[in-house]
């Protein structure tokens, strides 16, 4: 039950092979058509639902 935006953000996070996860900056670069606000809104939802988590700091994310 993801929206299109949530799905895009989640799939990018899921596909990142880095141990520290994907950086906020990379999400913004890959999703140029979304605003920073849109991306942060998606991240909040995904974290709240337990689909993703922050890693080494609040700007890196991995999927569960």
């Amino acid at each position: 039950g993801f929206t299109a935006n949530q799905s895009q953000v989640f799939n990018l996070i899921k596909s990142c092979p880095l141990a520290e996860g994907i950086a906020m900056q990379s999400l913004m670069t890959s999703l140029k058509y979304l605003t920073t606000y849109d991306i942060r809104t998606c991240l909040k939802f995904l974290i709240n639902e337990g689909h993703i988590f922050s890693t080494v700091d609040d700007d890196h994310f991995k999927s569960t």
């Binding site: 141990a19 689909h51 890693t55 080494v56």
Partner: peptide, 29 residues
């Protein structure tokens, strides 16, 4: 991996918390 043991520990703890949260959300329906 270029992560320190402390960073690896933090990531694993955050992962476990997220998994618990996911289970909680699924249980709520």
């Amino acid at each position: 991996s270029n992560l320190t043991p402390e960073q690896q520990k933090k990531i694993e703890e955050n992962r476990q918390r997220a998994l618990a949260r996911r289970a909680e959300r699924l249980a709520q329906g």
